[in-house]
Write a protein that binds this DNA or RNA. Structure first.
Length: 157
DNA sequence: TCCATGCGCGGCC
DNA sequence: GGCCGCGCAGTGG
């Protein structure tokens, strides 16, 4: 697995590719972490993100996504019980905006949106991180919010 | 070292 | 049958 090869499309898995579980996504190289929704680091940026309904503040408009950063959740209930900080995956997504890096978007069936697959997970192509900011989420705690915008498909390189 | 948008099972309505 | 809470498994950033 070459690190520098982890941004952008993955050969053999075009947009629209479907998967049953996070394990399959990981093995395909589209999104390696088995649990985390954001893959990447604050140093190099985020390779991929998963929309799977884990955060109530995430909004899905198809070609535009308001993605919620991670952190501040109660491990038991999944509810926001604390403020999020601009660290780890959140910092990685901020890095994508800074350097103009694309991020792979995968939608899971648990995401409540008309754009989510009926079952399993689906790779929905590359998005750019247009902007990000901090705001108060539904639970009353600060969350980091990222505006992801679908990138035009430029065809084979 | 810790954290992370799983997964399956059993109980309840 | 669907929803929800709980507990456990296990990999990668």
């Amino acid at each position: 697995m070459r690190y520098e090869r982890t941004f952008g499309d993955i050969p053999g898995y075009p947009e629209g590719s479907c998967f049953g579980t996070r394990l399959e996504l990981s093995q395909a190289g589209l999104h390696r972490p088995m649990v985390a929704g954001i893959s990447g680091s604050g140093r190099i940026g985020a390779n991929s993100v998963v929309l799977a309904g884990g955060y109530e503040d995430t909004e899905d408009f198809g070609d535009e996504i308001l993605y919620t950063g991670h952190g501040g959740r109660d491990p038991e209930t999944g509810r926001q019980v604390a403020h999020q900080t601009l660290t780890r995956g959140n910092l990685a997504l901020a890095c994508n905006k800074l350097y103009g890096l694309p991020v792979r978007v995968i939608r899971g069936a648990r995401q409540r949106s008309p754009y989510a697959p009926e079952a399993g997970y689906r790779y929905d192509g590359l998005y750019s991180v247009d902007e990000y900011w901090r705001e108060v989420g539904k639970a009353g705690f600060y969350i980091w919010r990222f505006r992801l915008v679908k990138m035009a498909v430029s065809g084979p390189r």
